[in-house]
């Protein structure tokens, strides 16, 4: 009689693809053990693929069910589930798709996967109370450049080589799924989640970089300098952050210390 650890080892081997691994441990009752084990094997695969489908619905729609399932099975072989929580199963999928599609002419699928993963993680992020532009009003003008902004935890900045935001929008429920001309080129996208739900905004490269630097705790002055955002667009960029409720705190300038 197999011990509990031995039995689970044999069961695991059977679910992974060796139908005879468990045969001697099963009361058949007229149905062979391989047939019974196949139910668990298909259930486990369905759970994995189902979670991946829910995370990457646009990618699935673009490549079709057959190729998506082929991708999912290859991905599972490389990145089996490591958690009882299905939510994180798709974490490494964009990287896997990037490796799989390199040199195929379908490299944009990896960028689409990255955008969908950003959406997935934005949807479950903590939401903090937003502050308005009046939170900057009391600051001395000479300290504005040394001030930082704390942004919503859900905010994700994505820069792509292909127009995957257009692809994403064309493949939302109710949209016609019309093909997008990939020659349209790069897009920069800010993904966030509010009370109203998921929000995706196309930004200029400089504004996206400006926001990304603020996320990395750069001061406003540093973010302006390093992003090379045109100074005339700065009011609009700040206005966007405040109006969208993406600013959660103003980080005052650190006082200088003298030794």
């Amino acid at each position: 009689m197999a011990s509990l650890p031995e039995l689970q080892a044999r069961f695991s081997a059977a679910v992974r693809g060796d139908p005879d691994a468990l045969a001697c441990e099963v009361s058949s009752g007229g149905i062979d053990a391989a047939g019974r084990v196949s139910i668990y094997r298909s259930n486990s695969l369905a759970m994995f693929e189902g979670a991946l489908e829910r995370t990457y619905p646009v990618l699935r729609r673009r490549v079709g069910d057959d190729y998506f399932h082929q991708l999912a099975r290859g991905y599972r072989a490389r990145h089996p589930s490591r958690s009882g929580d299905l939510h994180w199963i798709g974490e490494h999928f964009p990287g896997y798709v990037a490796n799989t599609e390199t040199g195929t002419g379908y490299e944009w699928l990896a960028e689409l996967a990255a955008l969908e993963w950003a959406c997935e993680t934005a949807l479950v992020a903590r939401q903090e109370p937003a502050v308005g532009p009046d939170s900057l009003a009391g600051l001395p003008p000479d300290q504005l450049g040394a001030t930082g902004l704390r942004l919503q935890p859900s905010l994700r900045c994505i820069a792509t080589s292909f127009p995957v935001l257009d692809v994403w929008r064309a493949n939302q429920p109710g949209a016609d799924g019309a093909p997008i001309d990939l020659a349209r080129g790069a897009q920069c996208v800010a993904v966030s989640c509010s009370e109203a739900g998921l929000e995706l905004r196309e930004l200029s490269p400089a504004v996206l970089e400006f926001i990304r630097l603020l996320q990395d705790e750069a001061t406003l002055g540093e973010a302006v300098d390093r992003s090379r955002i045109p100074i005339e667009t700065l009011p609009d960029a700040l206005g966007l952050l405040f109006e969208a409720g993406l600013v959660t705190a103003v980080r005052p300038a650190e006082s200088e210390t003298h030794q």
């Binding site: 509990l4 039995l7 689970q8 080892a9 069961f11 695991s12 679910v15 441990e25 668990y40 259930n43 486990s44 759970m47 994995f48 979670a51 089996p80 589930s81 490591r82 958690s83 009882g84 299905l86 199963i89």
Partner: peptide, 14 residues
């Protein structure tokens, strides 16, 4: 789960 791989299914016990 077995050896860290989760099957994300409710598997039976003896």
């Amino acid at each position: 789960s077995f050896e860290g791989e989760h099957f994300n299914d409710l598997l039976p016990l003896p």
